[in-house]
Structure formats: C-alpha cells, structure tokens
Design a protein around this nucleic acid. Sequence first.
DNA 1: CTGAAAGCGCTTACAG
DNA 2: CTGAAAGCGCTTACAG
Lengths: 337, 337
Amino acid sequence: MRDVARRAGVSVATVSRALDGSSTVAEETALLVQNAVEALDFVPNISARTLKYGQSRALGVIIPDLSNPFFFEFLREFEALASANEQVVLLANAETSTGGPRSSVRQMLMRLVDGVVVMPSIDELEPYQLLTLRKVPTVAIDSRRVGPYFSDVSLMHEEGMLQAVGCLKELGHRRIAFIAGSEGLFISSIRLEAFRSALRKHLIPERAGYIRAGNYRVDGGDREMRALLELRDRPTAVIAINDMTALGALRAARAASVSVPGDVSVIGFDGIELDEVVSPTLTTISVSRAHMAKSCHTALKELQTARHHEGRQFQVPVELVRRQSTGPARRLRKAVL
Amino acid sequence: MRDVARRAGVSVATVSRALDGSSTVAEETALLVQNAVEALDFVPNISARTLKYGQSRALGVIIPDLSNPFFFEFLREFEALASANEQVVLLANAETSTGGPRSSVRQMLMRLVDGVVVMPSIDELEPYQLLTLRKVPTVAIDSRRVGPYFSDVSLMHEEGMLQAVGCLKELGHRRIAFIAGSEGLFISSIRLEAFRSALRKHLIPERAGYIRAGNYRVDGGDREMRALLELRDRPTAVIAINDMTALGALRAARAASVSVPGDVSVIGFDGIELDEVVSPTLTTISVSRAHMAKSCHTALKELQTARHHEGRQFQVPVELVRRQSTGPARRLRKAVL
DNA sequence: CTGAAAGCGCTTACAG
DNA sequence: CTGAAAGCGCTTACAG
C-alpha cells in the first residue's frame, strides 16, 4: 500500500480512502490511485484490516463427519452466498479435526470469523456456546433453541412427515416403519417424534419393532431394513431419517429380492441428487438446500444488528417428491385386481 | 494478551514467548502465564500474527462447480490433514463465486494463505499463475505441469485405463466405447488419450462413434449411453471418464432395458462411495482420496522449502475394483454355452 | 530469562 | 479533500 501511495503521489491514508469507496476522495486522486493499484497489481492484506476491525469477512462452517452428500450440496449453496458478499468460507470438520469440536471452535475464534454455521446434533451443542459467549453470531441446524448470538434454522419435519405418512395412507399402507438415526441424537429424535405425531394424526397405530435405530449412513439403512424384512408382520412401507439410510434400505430390499415398490414402499428425507440416479428412483421429503443456505446466511447477518443480538428461529419448508419407490400397498392392489 | 500479561504479572513479550513454546522462559513464569490464559480463556488473534509473519496457517481449496461427490470426499481428507497441522481450510468455488476463478484467487492472496489446491481444467489454469507469481505454493490436480511454486498431483490414468481395458479384453470384449468429459477440457483429453493408448497396447481397434463427449455429470452419461445403445454395432463395454458419468450410463441402460453386465459392461473412474450403493454395483478405476490429499498437502509443504521453490510431480496410484457392472461379453458367453 | 520498543499493513478520528 | 499519527494484537531482535 505504501508503494501504491508513492506511485500515486499521495499518502497511504488517501489510498485507503480511495479503495474504501465510501470515503470522500477527489475524483482525480481516486483515478491516480486506481492506476497505481493496477500497475502494481496491488492486493490488500486482509489481516491488517481484521486486526483493526475485529472482523475478518470469513464465515465458518462446522460439519459433522457424515459421509453425506447433503452437506456438500448445502456447502455449495452457502459458499455461493458468502462469496457474493465477498466473504470466504472456513471449513472445519467437527469429528476428524484433531481435538474435535472444541478445536474447530477455537480456530473460528482465533480467526475472528463473522459467523458460524453449526450442523451438529444437540449432544455436541455445548462446545459451541464458547462462540456465542464471545459474541460470534452462530446458527445451528435443527437445534430448536435460540439465544443471544444464537439462531436456529429448523426444517419443517412435522409437515414433511405428515405428507409422507399421508401419501402412504392414501396408497393403502397401514404398516409403516421408521429407520431413525443413531440413538440419543437430538435430530434423530426430532424426526422420530415428527413421524410418530404424523402416525397419530393419521390414526395409524405404531407397531412393535417398527422403529429402528440406523446411523444416517447406507450401511445402517441396509442393516435395519434387513431386520424389518424378517419381521413376521413385515411393514409395507418404510420411512427413513435421511436419503442415505433410504438408499441402504433399497439395497437391502434388492438383496432380499423384495420388490420396491411392489412389496414395500420406501421414502427418504433430504432430496439429494442421487435419489434420481438409483433404481427405483427414491421418493423423498426434499429440503431446499438453497433455502437452507439462505436462511443460515440471513440469520448470521441479522444477529449482528438484532436488538440485544437476540436470535430467532427460521423455518425451512420441505416437500414430498414422489418417485418410483412408493406405490400401492399389497393388500389394496389385490383388492383392485 | 495484555490482560493475560497483567494477570500473570509479566510483560506481553513474555506471554508471547511462553505461548510460543519454543522460546526460553522460566518454568514458573510459564506456569503463571498458563494459569492466566486459562483463567481468562485467552484465544490469540491470528490476524495479528499473520500481519507479522505474512503467513496465515490457512490453506485454500478451489474446486470447480461439478456436483461430484468425489470432490467432497477429497475435501474431507484434506481438511483432516490440514487440521492435524493446525491449519484451516478456506473454500472457494471457482465457478459459482461471483467473479469466477480470479476472485477466488484474489481472496486467497488477500488472506495470505500458505498454499492453494486447485482442481480445475487446464483451460482455467491461467488465472492461478497470479498465485505462483506471488510465491504462494500452489498444487493442481492433473495439470501435468510444474514450475516455481507450482507442483502437480497426477492420477495414474494410463495404468488405470490399461487395467480396465485389459480386464474387459479378458472378458472377451472387443467393442469398447468411451464417454469422455466436456470437449476441450484438458483432464478429459488426458483420460481419453490414456484410453486410446490402452486400446492400442491391447491391440483393440477404435471404432467410429465410440468416443463420446459427456459432461462429467449423470445426465451427460445418460445421454451418451443412449446414443451408444442406438448404434448399429453397439459396444459391448463402456468406460466412463468418471463415476457420475458411469452412473448415468447405468441409468440409460436400465431405461432401455439393456442388461448390465449381461448386454453391456460399464466401468467408471473415481471410486466414490455410491458405487457400492447402486445396482448393479459399479466396477471402477478407484482413486485413493487419502493418497491424493496427502500428496497435495505434502506438495504444498515442500514448495516452501524446496530449492528455488521448484515444484515436482506426484503420482497417485489407481486401482481397478471389479464389481457387478462388468461381465463376459455376449459373444464369448454364447461360445462357452 | 525478561522487558521496552519497533514494526507488520491497514483504518480513522483529528487537524488543516 | 488530504496528510500525519495513533492503534489494532502480536512477535522478535536488542538490551539488560
């Protein structure tokens, strides 16, 4: 910057103001600076500004180590929003990072990020309080809590499950099972509760052994689907906590020569791009990643200016997308024939 | 830091030295500082250090906007390495970022990253020269070039294609097609050349219309597979430039009621996790993401200390993984029967 | 082994 | 409209 100033024949203060844009600089001076900047290919040093401002124009994203395409798809959207705002995305993986979530949080603090998106389960939410204590705007997915410097972006699981169960009911299904996530995880229990509540609203009884604990991954879905298929009163439909689990369920059905949707219908949750690649294509409760990313970004921005920096809840709509993995229940089909 | 110094009853210089670890500090002084740090929950401000050092302990990753799980899987591995080195990952998407690659590069420069991984096609390599000019260690995947501050991590396409074609030949295939990436992209032409060279080495003729231009995505693979299946002398085997393309090819075959591997064999490239989820599971030329991430990380480290900061080439081995999508060629099968 | 001081590159009241 | 100067939080030769 000193070089630029020298070349333009002005002071560094003037250069700074000229680059800032909002400050008052004579037009010809600005031009002089502009030329010098281009001639020297000047790139400002952000850390100097950060040191001054206490803000780095960087946003952190802390993602759990689930090998889930959904997160990548979210990340893509979020990065686009950040870069449109001249912000950069700092990535940290809560699990694989040496030191776990605490070290991720520490990195975010050391770098004075302008905000952090956390995609954890509630069990792990505690380490992130360090962020809000230090007044770093933080938004968590599906934490269902708000507070100072802390907002929540929640998916509308209830509506999604209601639609899914409703759709199955229409197709004649009464024996509907659910493959949840790992036991004890909060998100898992939210979706499970949403499922149960949907059953109740549709007056469908919950059956013994119909609620299974998966692990959000393909292998968990595969394993639990096998178990379900071995039940005496085998379900005619299965809803999975996410698409990866549902894909595992499809695989298990294939391996057991159980036809989908002929013998059993399957519904996932997320709406990842793969759903349309597998066969049968997967019916799913689809979440708009763009909407989710937008909510997260807005939430972080709002927290900076909100009164008392108090957070609020954002709702992300979901939508049942019907594809090949759902069809009429066996019994109904026979009746029709 | 001033607070810590005050509380510990020492100067900030001493605090800095105590935290540094390598400097000489009396043991009891160090303890005093340690206590103060803990009492105040002190988190150092990295930008101050960056300002001083000119290094930020951040690594940039610039990824093209391909909706390809392979990149995420790579990113995961790379992030783990970075965080084990107390480095953070700065993510930029070359395409979606407003301003394209140039603005991504600018962000990296402004933030004084210690190195950058670029995963582009050669067409786009030029903007990244700004990095090496400014002495930022840069490593590109499959660029096949090296230079000052510039290393290359190349996959061993030739070996992979040789194995793939060899495997198909053994199974009796002679009519082998290839679905490439977008025309004009360098990576696409590397893999295509590797395929052609493999054909030559195995004395298999290349047929008209057997080389197709896809787009690295499912829809491109789908589209080109349909075209291939409509040929009069339909191929008995298809190799795709990457797994997403191969998955598209599988879908097209399914839609056309063409059996895989009964009527046609399919081989992908990458080895993404999904290959084992689809049906039939996908035979692929698998690339170790861990190895690739390790090479990139090492390359960046090396460039800082190398003589004249001259880059070099790293080779990442690949390996054919046989799964369900490959089988004996029709003709051979008949002969056997 | 420790402290005072300079300096990294920027921004911004404060004068003029 | 512009310049000189202080200061952001850290590190590190330089004395002691």
